[in-house]
């Protein structure tokens, strides 16, 4: 898994490449916690290179979502691969998270 982040005018884009599973979700969680050290109003998560996510990874997504909801910010996911989208659909998470086709749409909404 590779995590990179980039500041935008209204928040931050996190780019995750590879898999988030039981073996490395800690790493992902720590990286996300680092981002939370600064106040951010918008977190965009680029899922285009995310190949797999386990329930442990989903839990971290939920943590981000809840935190952002608590501060009045937004957590937006975009460019999700169909297999990941399916996991989100099955688990009902599609109704919890804001999922967009691409960054532009995510930014506009």
């Amino acid at each position: 898994m590779e995590i990179t982040s980039q500041k935008t005018d209204d928040g931050i884009i996190i780019f995750v490449k590879g898999r988030i599973d039981t073996t490395n979700y800690n790493e992902f969680e720590n990286a996300v916690n680092d981002i939370f050290k600064d106040d951010v109003s918008q977190i965009y998560l680029d899922c285009s290179a995310l190949n797999y996510i386990s329930s442990s990874g989903l839990r971290v997504f939920l943590t981000i979502q809840k935190k952002m909801m608590g501060t009045g910010g937004k957590f937006k996911l975009f460019a999700m691969q169909p297999s990941i989208k399916e996991i989100f659909d099955i688990s009902g998470f599609s109704s919890i998270f804001s999922i967009y086709a691409d960054f532009e749409t995510a930014k506009q909404n």
């Binding site: 688990s91 009902g92 109704s95 919890i96």
Partner: peptide, 11 residues
């Protein structure tokens, strides 16, 4: 069919 239910323990 897939339903809209989310996992328990969240909200």
């Amino acid at each position: 069919n897939i339903t809209k239910g989310i996992p328990v323990g969240l909200f």
